[in-house]
């Protein structure tokens, strides 16, 4: 276990106009760890994830990937300078993102989706990209659909394809933004199953989710976000078993059947 965290989130603030969505969020994610982020709608969970890879640049604070700041760098003279989009793009390769809306590119087949970024961004030779892409598809049990277009797949299959697509870039960490929220209940399990396997394999993951069972059973740490701040955090046993804050208790009570 290295000392430097894979991802360090340092005091992130983000506002949209007058609305302050993130009010200073900080936490570390070490290699191989699975961190779940839970909270009510509007608590800033998705925004936080979108800040991690600068889809939304934070207003203040910084994201560190393996110790390197994402938004800025220090030049030869020791001065801080904002990173260019090209540099940010280069660092984004190390983060795999799975979106709530899958966001598969409809005009490419499943395999086409999976190999697009490895070829265009990592500049892999086509054969290599296809070989590893197929391996990723096997991992999510979708290899038989490699030649299909996304429109012909079910929601669960599309999301698994999206996971394979993210894995094909061999990222240092995987970010899941409510990956199962758009799925019908019957289809959630196949995706959650894949996510569990990834966690078991030692993938570094930040999972924004409403699936409390997943958070409880798979995470190393759970972070409860409330109105843009970390209200409480800790191992699942504490968060689910012995919640300290009143808001957390209220939140969890909605999920107790």
């Amino acid at each position: 276990m290295s000392d430097v965290p894979s991802i360090r989130i340092a005091d992130i603030h983000k506002s949209f106009g007058p609305l302050e969505v993130l009010r200073g969020v900080s936490f570390d994610v070490h290699r191989g760890a699975v961190v779940s982020v839970i909270g009510a709608s509007g608590s800033g969970k998705s925004t936080l994830l979108r800040c991690v890879n600068h889809l939304e640049p934070p207003d203040s604070g910084e994201i560190y990937i393996d110790g390197e700041p994402l938004g800025s760098r220090v030049d030869a003279r020791g001065q801080r300078k904002p990173r260019s989009l090209a540099e940010i793009n280069a660092m984004r390769r190390e983060l795999g993102v799975v979106f709530q809306q899958f966001n598969l590119w409809p005009h490419m087949t499943v395999l086409g989706n999976v190999i697009e970024a490895p070829i265009r961004v990592r500049k892999l030779p086509r054969k290599e990209a296809i070989a590893y892409g197929e391996e990723c598809l096997r991992r999510v049990k979708l290899i038989d659909k490699a030649g299909e277009y996304p429109a012909r797949l079910s929601g669960g299959q599309q999301q698994r394809a999206a996971i394979a697509r993210a894995l094909a870039m061999r990222p240092k960490a995987m970010l899941f933004d409510e990956a199962t929220s758009s799925l019908d209940p019957e289809l959630k399990d196949e995706v959650l199953g894949v996510m569990r396997e990834l966690a078991a394999d030692g993938t570094t993951m930040i999972v924004v989710t409403h699936e409390m069972s997943f958070a409880r059973e798979v995470s190393d740490r759970v972070i409860f976000l409330h109105e843009g701040r970390i209200e409480e955090e800790g191992p699942p046993a504490d968060i689910f078993g012995a919640p300290k804050s009143e808001r957390l208790r209220q939140f969890l009570s909605k999920y107790r059947k």
Binding site: N89, R92, N103, E116
Partner: peptide, 16 residues
Amino acid sequence: IPQGNLDAGRAFGMSE
């Protein structure tokens, strides 16, 4: 074109 398609592209580090 749905914004999500573009987000996915950006998330993978694709240039504009």
